[in-house]
């Protein structure tokens, strides 16, 4: 299974330079724990890894093959769990999940959906429409997506939000299983999620010292001072 790497990544949100010169590497079986204060770019980095956000500079690659060369292949390799739960109020939990499983390439979407709900400890919500689910149940439903269709790299943005202690323990077990089978995870979190042997990435290490922006010369990397200015 290939290694996922990012090198010299720079993230620009609007005019704000969020992080710059960031490198990471996730090999099969490994976990990457993203740490840092609010606004340090944890979510942005995960969105960048997913391919939602284009890096301003730097590159993402699978075994050295750049992601932009094969965006379809990249999307087939990842699962992304963001802040929003993507639960349709009029569909039942099982229908919600089966749709994503089918889209992700599961052979029998309904069966894998039910199995995934079972694994996350909420088999009883399968027939319940999305609008009656609690925040925690929606969260579990969203997390169940990563099990309903297989993908090697999981990108989890604050997965423990709205989860109780038991659910977090379940999640830890699921991540450990995934890694044992050669899967990879990148997780951003404030709370503690136990991931033995996880590599830690402190995003505040990559925050630029001065508030750089796209309209400064140096953001273009070629220096800007010309003869007329120096004279």
């Amino acid at each position: 299974m290939p290694v996922f790497t990012g090198s010299e990544l720079t993230c620009l949100r609007g005019d704000r330079l969020v992080f710059t010169g960031l490198d990471f590497r996730v090999a099969p079986g490994e976990a990457l724990l993203l740490l840092g204060p609010n606004g340090s770019g944890k979510s942005s980095l995960l969105r960048m890894m997913a391919g939602l956000l284009k890096p301003f500079r730097g590159r993402l690659a699978w075994d050295g093959a750049p992601v932009p060369d094969d965006p379809d292949g990249h999307r087939a390799k990842i699962h992304y769990v963001g802040h929003l739960d993507a639960v349709k109020p009029v569909l039942t939990a099982a229908e919600n999940l089966a749709f994503w499983a089918g889209l992700g390439g599961a052979a029998d979407p309904r069966a894998s959906a039910l199995a995934a709900l079972d694994r996350l400890g909420v088999p009883q919500i399968a027939g319940v429409p999305g609008r009656y689910l609690s925040a925690g149940q929606k969260r579990r439903l969203n997390l169940a997506r990563v099990l309903a269709a297989p993908a090697p790299l999981w990108l989890l943005d604050e997965p423990s939000v709205a989860l109780d202690r038991a659910a977090v323990a379940l999640l830890e077990g699921i991540i450990a299983e995934h890694r044992a089978a050669g899967g990879m995870v990148a997780v951003s979190t404030h709370a503690d999620i136990a991931m033995p042997g996880a590599r830690e990435l402190h995003l505040d290490d990559f925050t630029p010292v001065t508030g750089g922006n796209a309209f400064d010369d140096d953001a273009f990397g070629d220096g800007g001072i010309e003869g007329e200015d120096a004279a």
Partner: peptide, 16 residues
């Protein structure tokens, strides 16, 4: 427009 963007960035930096 460019000057305005610069001012915006300065404000953002201050806020940070």
């Amino acid at each position: 427009e460019i000057v305005q963007r610069r001012i915006q960035t300065m404000r953002l930096t201050q806020a940070a």
